[in-house]
Design a protein around this nucleic acid. Sequence first.
DNA 1: AATTATTGTTACATATTGTTAAAAATAGTT
DNA 2: AACTATTTTTAACAATATGTAACAATAATT
Lengths: 223, 223
Amino acid sequence: MIPLLLIEDETDLGLIIADNLQSAEYSVSHCADGEQGLFLFHQLKPAVVILDVMLPGMDGFAIAKKIREVDTETPILFLTARTQTVDVVNAFELGANDYLRKPFSLEELKVRINALAQRNQWQYQKRFLQIGDYVMDGMRQQLQYKEEILNLSFRECELIKMLYESKNKVVHRQDIIQAVWPNDRFFTGRSLDVFISRIRTYLQHDKRISIVNIRAVGYKMII
Amino acid sequence: MIPLLLIEDETDLGLIIADNLQSAEYSVSHCADGEQGLFLFHQLKPAVVILDVMLPGMDGFAIAKKIREVDTETPILFLTARTQTVDVVNAFELGANDYLRKPFSLEELKVRINALAQRNQWQYQKRFLQIGDYVMDGMRQQLQYKEEILNLSFRECELIKMLYESKNKVVHRQDIIQAVWPNDRFFTGRSLDVFISRIRTYLQHDKRISIVNIRAVGYKMII
DNA sequence: AATTATTGTTACATATTGTTAAAAATAGTT
DNA sequence: AACTATTTTTAACAATATGTAACAATAATT
């Protein structure tokens, strides 16, 4: 989970923002003033700081300056009132990375956060899986065998990823289903078996690879 | 390259200035009168306008006024004859950001331009997106591939921006629609898919770029 | 061996997306 | 206003992804 720090004194607005950013990806810590903000910054080492310019006590600029004294990397996104146009210049001089004028749509905020957070997040993603003689590009959703490139669908890709990550180990049916079909809480059908069947044909060129069934338990990818 | 606009009627001086500002950073467009100047302003959306006060026809103040009617951001730097001291006040009231008295040293001009351009530099970071071998100019809504320049429509441009800002991550259909079609609260059609299709053909020259669909979820731009 | 439960496979139904063309809306010009 | 060019939406059909059903194959149990 990627930690975010939100410093915003309007409690209701802060809560709404925190609530909406909170997701499978992000965990949001929210506080209302600069001192607490700086404390939390050092505590959490957030991926992105979202910083209201107008704050009681230490204002946003002062906080940004403090942060930049010890850290020049962590992206800072300023929230400004619509009126304070000029201050934006100030913000960027202090090392801000982006800003949003209030009122803004939460969607827009999300997009910006994604953009800012992603730079650092990128390194954690392992994009290419070497599966026997195959290479799967999890980002592009492609499976390559020698010169041949096969486009995978999203679920096919997720399924291969899941099996590969637990290669040579049994993966339980229920776990696969929860991972690949997260929304279908009443998934009862047999799609999983169908997908396994299809994946087997995809991977048939390398005889060392096989996906074996453990009856009534799950599957195991062997390499 | 950061575009500058120079409006100066003394041809020789204009050429010298243009020549000296022209560099790896800046591309200078030069014209001799206000009407052409305004035309070029809208065409180029320059980072800084360098504006002689004394011009035949529309004078510098009138041009600045015209510009400020539609744009309050772009810095304007006035060039004034040594004699017209008082008019400087006038200039700043019209939204000038700096001025230089003739004769001035080219070094000084450079320094001022740098200062003005840098202030808005963040705009240019956002303005130009390097997308693989392409460069998109978000302000002029143009997509450049090598020598080839393609004019984009507003929504095409917004869509590319949105996907690029969250590159290598899934962007949800709903989020795209909210961002690119903000007013259409009852957007039901399939324009998004059509636009995706078109953008794919625009970006097809660079094989590293692809936009993959995640069924029932959204799209992901991969670079 | 017969029965049963589970999985393998194929075919098909359905929903979503890809693509193209044409219609409608919009902006710009005369 | 009328015409033009451009942008955007709609419509139509093709292609693809995914879920379901049907039946075959296999393993476990009786």
